[in-house]
Amino acid sequence: MAAIEVQGLAKTYGDLRAVDGVDLEVAEGEFFGLLGPNGAGKTTTLEMIEGLRRPDAGTVRVLGEEVWPRNEALLPRVGVQLQASAFFERLTAREQLRTFAALYGVDRAEADRWLEEVGLEDKAGTRVEDLSGGQAQRLSIACALVHDPELVFLDEPTAALDPQARRNLWDLLSGLNDSGRTVVLTTHYMDEAEVLCDRVAIIDAGRILECDSPAALVRTLDAPARVSVAPGQLDVGTARGLAGVDDVVESHDGLVLTTRTPGPVLARLAELDHLDGVRVQTGTLEDVFLSLTGREYRA
């Protein structure tokens, strides 16, 4: 059974069609990413799937249940971390999490365990208004997970996190998915989606443009490889003369060779004994994202 089934989902605000006929299916146990520029319709789509916003058209089923009108039977089975966190005022981090736990009949020991899971045990006695942005984000995630939901929605969960906290959260989220939970993620970090997601859907102007695994989407991209050679390894003239090299750019970091046949180019560099410090970069999910949505600034 699919964890999420969406057909013909639409939402309009005046002349703006924020979500325009979205069809989507997420399998049970899948780690699914919803990617798009600012204003693409990601959050509105998620809010309708979560049952927080009424669709103008279309149907949504979550864990086999209709989500609208508001389906209270789904609440214990679903965890939601919103883009903007809202906490009870003047409560400490521990009190906040224990309050959320109590709403679901979860004991205090389990709530305290989640403080440790998100690295906030040393902030247990700190009022939520005194937490940093990243700490508040981690507390919000703990509140979404404290009742052990089957399906978890995370809207940009690593925004405002430092690199260490971000990587630690990746491990936590991977563990959730490995234990059989379904996870739906929105993020602006393409490397995050590549590492975590089984499949991603790229949305823009309220429509799904592509939906597949990150690796499959990258394979469809007609992008050359970039071979970076460390300074002093190779002169520009020799680099330009290598078979298969389309372009050479010189910088303070050495040379960058653009090629669509990296294998033979690397073999020739090996013959010349110029492989020290060589790095190869092929197409990435970010390249796919930009090719589909463009490079212009979004509000």
Rank of each mutant, 00 (worst) to 15 (best):
E271V: 10
T182I: 11
V19C: 07
A73V: 09
L292N: 09
E25V: 14
G175I: 07
S132R: 08
L139F: 09
V62I: 05
A159L: 06
L269S: 02
G254Y: 07
V249R: 15
L145C: 13
T238L: 13
T182P: 08
L234K: 13
V183I: 13
R61F: 02
L234H: 10
E150R: 15
A102D: 10
N38G: 10
T259Y: 04
R181K: 15
A101V: 10
E89T: 14
P149S: 03
V227Q: 03
R295D: 07
Q7R: 15
F87Y: 14
L52T: 05
Y297E: 14
R77S: 06
G125S: 11
E110Y: 09
G206N: 03
P224H: 06
V152K: 07
G134K: 08
C211G: 00
E47Q: 14
G244V: 13
L266P: 06
T12K: 14
D171T: 12
R268H: 14
E286P: 11
T284V: 09
V152W: 10
Q137V: 02
E65R: 14
E89I: 09
V128Q: 04
F31W: 05
E192L: 06
L172H: 09
L145I: 12
L275G: 07
A10Q: 13
S85R: 02
V229D: 05
G36S: 05
I49D: 03
P163A: 00
R90L: 01
M190Y: 13
A165T: 10
F31P: 05
D130V: 00
T258N: 02
R240L: 13
T43M: 02
A109T: 15
N168L: 11
R94I: 05
D23K: 09
Q137P: 02
A2H: 08
A136S: 15
A10L: 00
L176A: 01
K42P: 12
S174Q: 15
T158R: 11
A216Y: 00
L257F: 11
L82E: 03
R77C: 04
R90K: 07
V256M: 06
R279S: 11
L154V: 14
T258K: 10
T126Y: 10
L52A: 06
D171C: 00
A144N: 10
A57R: 15
V227Y: 04
T45K: 02
L173I: 15
T293F: 04
D178R: 15
S291Y: 02
L97A: 01
V200R: 04
I49S: 05
